[in-house]
Design a protein around this nucleic acid. Structure first.
Lengths: 192, 192
DNA sequence: TGTACATCAGTGAACGCGCGTTCACTGATGTAC
DNA sequence: TGTACATCAGTGAACGCGCGTTCACTGATGTAC
């Protein structure tokens, strides 16, 4: 079968997008290549026409996840009334929706422990993606210099990721929601 | 072979202690029962005389990990000069040593994502362990009521766990140390 | 006191399954001539 | 213009490995008589 010119690129995109979701919801080990490909109506054998290994896909999928989340956060901040951008950022990140939707949520909250563990690989990919992510969001934070804003952003988002992860681990929904609510106040207060 | 009366209990303890370390450093899936038992000079078959499943051991190991960490943190706070307990708590948690020693460190930082994922199991175990953990540490936090102190403790420790996890995912050691340093200031400031 | 038997922590082979990766193959289209 | 051939995304069987779990067995000690 011969496919149209742009076809391969499109398939690759679809794989990355599906992987970005699947890895977040099931974890690096929990997400199987064959299942992923089946979702896209493809077979697992073809996977290796696009990626050298699962490892490579994982790295790329994390990058994609960061971008998606950053876009959503920036959009939320930009449509907030002037002066409330930071609050919008925090409220969106720590919303019940974000907490419930792991598959489309922050890759840090969903995958940090696994990334930290395999860090001795080609994982400066993660560090770079995280850095770009922070650069996109830093403009909504207070601070005299860009440097200061970025460092504050790193504090805010790594902290919120921890609390979000913790909320997700709670069995009791009320505990979960209270944790999120407390966190929205705590971080807004702490950061400005 | 017939073993002395307390023998079984002791073996069980050894398994839990080893598992608590192994799960934290390699993750739930990365830690194999056979390897764990081999470390204790035992064979994998005997494991099931002590636990019904890997799942059960995982739950118990997390509890153990929480206890160890809480003990260490409480000890650090108690030997601090009066008035500096909270600072000691934060500095210990966000120390370079804690960051480097995943195997003996905070189970939240090491395992949250995996726990959140398997939460639909017997995992109120995690919630309970986390709660006890917070109760042990709450007395070092400011706040008018125990309730308020506990909620603040949950904010502090879930946030710090996120930042610690993030630091561990950094490839560049300087970035890692700066993140920890920033965090020590940030949380001390935010929480008192 | 001596003997037969029960107990049960630990052994190690075996089972079964999931999964990453490989590989020979397919077949529609583009290209060379 | 027509024909032979190359290309290469995708197919699906197969390989190899790791690992959780099971199971028949061991053998020193405690217990029943």
């Amino acid at each position: 079968v011969r496919y149209p010119a742009e076809h391969k690129q499109q398939t690759r995109e679809r794989i990355v997008a599906a992987a970005a979701r699947r890895f977040r919801s099931r974890g690096r080990d929990g997400a199987a290549i064959a299942d992923l490909m089946r979702d896209l109506r493809l077979t697992h054998g073809g996977f290796y026409r696009h990626f050298d290994s699962k490892e490579d896909l994982f790295a790329e999928a994390i990058g994609r996840a960061f971008e998606q989340v950053a876009d959503r956060l920036v959009a939320a901040a930009e449509k907030a009334p002037p002066g409330d951008e930071l609050k919008a950022l925090i409220d969106t990140y720590l919303s019940a929706q974000h907490c419930a939707d792991v598959a489309n949520g922050c890759p840090v909250a969903a995958l940090v422990s696994e990334i930290a563990r395999h860090q001795d690989g080609p994982y400066s990919a993660f560090q770079q993606a995280a850095r770009r992510h922070i650069e996109k969001l830093a403009r909504f934070l207070p601070g005299a210099t860009p440097q200061e804003r970025k460092r504050k952003t790193a504090m805010l988002f790594s902290g919120m990721a921890g609390t979000l992860g913790m909320a997700r681990a709670m069995t009791d929904p009320r505990r979960r929601l209270r944790l999120l609510e407390d966190a929205r106040k705590f971080y807004l207060n702490a950061v400005r």
